[in-house]
Design a protein around this nucleic acid. Structure first.
Lengths: 146, 146
DNA sequence: GTTCCTGCAAAAGCTTTGCAGAAGA
DNA sequence: TCTTCTGCAAAGCTTTTGCAGGAAC
């Protein structure tokens, strides 16, 4: 559980002025493990009685990304999704149910992932997306086949 | 150099009916190493006298993607880009100049990249994006500092 | 002759922007 | 009080869709 004040503190550390909306958006991203869309964030916060607009959600998310608090996941063919920045991890997208899951990435081996062709490049961010079918949907498929 | 007929053959193999527009789009993707946007493809082909519309470009690209001929790169905050499907490779995006470059990925090590957490998943596609600054822009920066 | 592909224009998202009023320090 | 954040609505872009005419086989 992350307290209101610790979120405010986090914003301050990142050089972002506090506001009710900003705190609530960041709090939601911390608590929701679902890589939400902007619209989802807007919907959930509104539902809980917060006075906020979709435009503010977008502006806030862009600000957070700029300051390095979150990541924007842009998945082909649909809205962007937003992910709280923690340790480095990959994203698995299920083509069947659309859910997005984190998976661990071994950073050491990712350094060796590419050959020397990148030695002259300054790499700042690594995004790794895998797509396929999640265990749950594999089970469902099996059920159908019977 | 890829001939008109060999492109037609390729379409046929993928179960796609031929048309002038489809052949030209695929040909352009083969020859252009630049990961073009749909609009760029439309512009270039029109300029060369082909009668084609932007809607057809999009429809064609989506069809190609469905049939596994190309990949859609969705880069946050801008239009999609399209990449002819060859061997597995990663994409480096320069945050300075926006250019997109391929880099080699060692597939064997990418298998070991993630821990066992993915062992129950059926992985079909792997997309790897690195972001940072390309050698050319690093040089430019150095020039400015002097 | 049939099938289905294309161009056009309009529609449909998602995201950003401008501005006046409100909140925060 | 002064700054700047927010909500609203409108605009901006990219992408998709419907339909009639035309190309492909």
């Amino acid at each position: 559980m992350v307290s209101f004040d610790s979120i405010r503190e986090k914003l301050k550390e990142s050089g972002i002025a506090s506001s009710v909306q900003r705190v609530k958006v960041l709090e939601y991203l911390h608590e929701c493990k679902c890589h939400p869309t902007a619209d989802r964030i807007y919907g959930e916060l509104s539902k809980n009685g917060l006075d906020i607009s979709l435009a503010t959600v977008y502006n806030t998310l862009n600000l957070f990304e700029e300051k390095g608090l979150i990541r924007i996941l842009s998945l082909e063919g649909s809205e962007n999704r937003y992910d709280i920045m923690t340790h480095d991890h990959g994203h698995f997208i299920c083509e069947e149910c659309g859910s997005i899951m984190n998976f661990e990435v071994n950073l050491n081996s990712s350094v060796y992932l590419c050959d020397e062709s990148l030695s002259d490049f300054k790499v700042k961010k690594r995004d790794i997306y895998f797509r396929g079918i999640c265990p749950e949907c594999i089970e469902k498929e099996k059920g159908k086949e019977k």
